[in-house]
């Protein structure tokens, strides 16, 4: 069995600061991490490989420095890593990203064997669109299972997969055919620590590096900024509210003072709250 896992290297946005004057992201010194959701996808893939045998290939599109994330993935136990890097890919929106990644997956398919499964995270924490997974599936003509909490069965003979998919009002248990693309939800499957042997191997393992041309991109105008139907026109900081909060002085009876202030400001709330409270 062959599983391709798409991972993205993202800035650790907990540590991102915005320059107060220029409104630009201050990236200096901001560490990068593997997108947290992608680790759930990677762990799910590794568990399936451990159970059914086969190989896990991790794939990322990003700057040369994204190699760090791939090495990290190798320490967790991935078998092979592919870095798709080229200045033509810069500035890609989701449509252009899926074009590049789908092209690379086709190339992986011819070089290393056709994948039975392609995994992505639910979403990234920087792009945060949850669209790249469905986009790759569509471009490769794969069936898709999104928001998967659990893969409940895999039958390599019958070529079927059963998975629990989160939907709005409950959980759908779906069965579909391989090959298919799965986007993984955050789950309880924390990424493993990785074996010592994998850590040693990862340090020296060759990383497959492909430019757009190496990956077999036929139409460069479908990549990066040029291949992106959406354009970002304006970037700005959220507007501050003009007034600050009215601070209630916490005197003798702060709770009463606060409730008085609430009802003074929104008199209708008192009857509404009484009605709501009666429901209990």
């Amino acid at each position: 069995m062959h599983i391709v896992v798409c991972i993205k290297q993202v800035p650790d946005s907990a540590q991102i600061r915005v320059h107060p004057v220029t409104n630009t992201i201050m990236r200096q010194g901001v560490p990068t991490i593997i997108n947290p959701y992608d680790l759930f996808a990677l762990e799910a893939a590794l568990e399936l490989r451990d159970q059914f045998g086969g190989e896990v290939t991790v794939l990322t599109m990003g700057p040369p420095s994204a190699e760090d994330s791939l090495r990290k993935a190798l320490t967790f136990g991935a078998d092979r890593a592919v870095l798709l890097t080229d200045r033509f890919f810069a500035g890609a929106d989701t449509l252009a990203t899926t074009y590049a990644l789908a092209t690379a997956i086709r190339k992986i398919s011819t070089e290393f064997g056709a994948p039975d499964l392609v995994f992505t995270g639910k979403q990234t924490i920087d792009g945060d669109t949850a669209q790249v997974g469905p986009g790759i599936a569509k471009r490769l003509g794969l069936l898709q299972l999104t928001y998967v909490a659990k893969i409940s069965a895999l039958d390599l003979q019958a070529r079927t997969i059963d998975a629990e998919r989160r939907s709005e009002g409950g959980v759908q248990l779906l069965r579909t055919r391989l090959p298919c693309l799965v986007t993984m939800l955050e789950a309880t499957n924390q990424i493993r620590r990785g074996a010592m042997a994998d850590a040693l191997r990862a340090a020296r393992a060759p990383i497959v590096k492909w430019s757009a041309q190496d990956a077999g991109v036929e139409d460069i105008s479908k990549c990066g900024l040029r291949g992106s139907p959406t354009i970002v026109k304006r970037v700005f900081a959220p507007a501050a509210r003009s007034e600050k909060a009215v601070l209630i002085e916490s005197g003798e009876q702060p709770a009463e003072a606060l409730i008085d202030a609430i009802f003074k400001r929104q008199p209708a709330l008192e009857t509404e709250l009484a009605a709501l409270a009666r429901g209990y």
Binding site: P11, S13, A14, I16, R17, V18, N23, I25, I125, D126, D128, P229, T230, I231, V232, K233, R234, V235, F236, A237, P238
Partner: peptide, 19 residues
């Protein structure tokens, strides 16, 4: 003109699909 948060909400950006 579609505005959405980016970088975990630290910034907003307005995005167009022009062509």
């Amino acid at each position: 003109a579609a505005t959405r948060p980016t970088f975990g909400g630290s910034l907003l950006c307005t995005i167009y699909t022009l062509n």
